[in-house]
Amino acid sequence: MRLSKVLEVKKKKLRSRIFTFGVIITGLLSITFAIITFYGQNAGNFVMSMDYDAYNRGIILSSDYDFTNPSPRLLTDPIEDARDMTYSWLKLDEVDQTDGNYVDPDYDYVAYTFYVKNDGFETVDITYHIRMTEINRNLDEAIRILVIEDGDETMYQKIDKVNADGQLPYYPEIMPTPKFFVNDTIIARENFTKFEPGQVKKFSIIMWLEGYDPDTDDDILGGRIKLQMNFSIDGLN
């Protein structure tokens, strides 16, 4: 049963197949996280280039805490036939306990956990931003992106539109207070400072189609969106 029926949300009925997710995380210091959604076709590989100077500074990433196999590219399994869902359905404990790709047996969403390590010799400040490089059929209106950085959750969404009565959409109280996209292409711009040699930070990135959002309707069918998450040392770029 669709989320809109379970929650008695009044909006258009979505078809059963919405889109397909595929994710690649790439980089050394310039780490790139790409989410690619396709409707009616398979997700292909999307590879980002790494920054040579960043590599020389010793910032690396891995899908496991021990960095047994650090890699410039980390690829999740694609998700087929994704449907709308909501924040309370996310299995956050399981995501946290699963390195790399987490596949929920009940619901469809992107969930990927990875680690960033300072394997160099100097303390640095790190900036990261998440941006949309391609948007089709206004899919950005309905998605939510949750970034969990060392256990701290931040949820990002586009600013909601008021309805004909001048009211904002209803969301359950359990939903995190969102941070709104910076602009039409930048989702988030954040930083962490004094990243010391040997220090490791843990990130989980989760993305889903929010069923309470009134923009989750038939208009997004066939939509496609591509996201990048880039890390850099402050002052390097």
Rank of each mutant, 00 (worst) to 15 (best):
G44M: 12
G44H: 08
F46V: 10
Y52K: 10
Y55N: 09
Y55G: 14
N56L: 15
N56T: 10
R57Q: 13
G58M: 09
L61E: 09
S63I: 03
D64C: 05
Y65W: 05
F67A: 09
T68C: 01
N69L: 08
R73P: 00
R73Q: 09
L74H: 05
L74S: 01
L74C: 00
L75G: 00
L75W: 00
P78G: 02
I79V: 15
I79D: 02
A82M: 07
R83H: 06
M85R: 02
Y87D: 07
W89Q: 14
W89Y: 13
W89N: 14
L90W: 01
L92A: 02
D93T: 10
D99P: 13
D99C: 13
N101L: 03
N101G: 07
Y102G: 04
P105H: 10
P105A: 05
D106K: 12
Y107W: 10
Y107F: 14
D108F: 10
V110H: 09
A111Y: 04
Y112I: 04
Y115G: 08
D119N: 15
F121L: 08
F121H: 11
F121M: 07
E122S: 13
E122C: 06
E122Q: 12
T123Y: 10
T123Q: 15
D125R: 01
D125Q: 05
D125L: 03
D125N: 14
I126C: 08
I126K: 01
T127L: 10
Y128H: 14
R131T: 06
R131A: 11
M132S: 08
T133N: 11
T133Q: 05
T133G: 15
E134Q: 15
E134N: 15
N136Y: 15
R137H: 12
R137D: 11
L139N: 00
D140T: 04
D140G: 12
D140W: 00
E141F: 06
A142G: 06
R144K: 11
L146N: 03
V147M: 09
V147P: 01
D150F: 04
G151T: 08
G151W: 04
E153H: 11
T154G: 06
T154D: 05
Q157A: 06
I159Y: 00
I159A: 11
D160P: 13
V162C: 03
V162N: 00
N163D: 15
N163W: 03
D165A: 11
G166Y: 01
G166P: 04
Q167A: 05
Q167D: 08
L168D: 06
L168V: 13
P169T: 08
P169C: 10
Y170L: 11
P172V: 06
P172L: 06
P172Q: 04
E173Y: 07
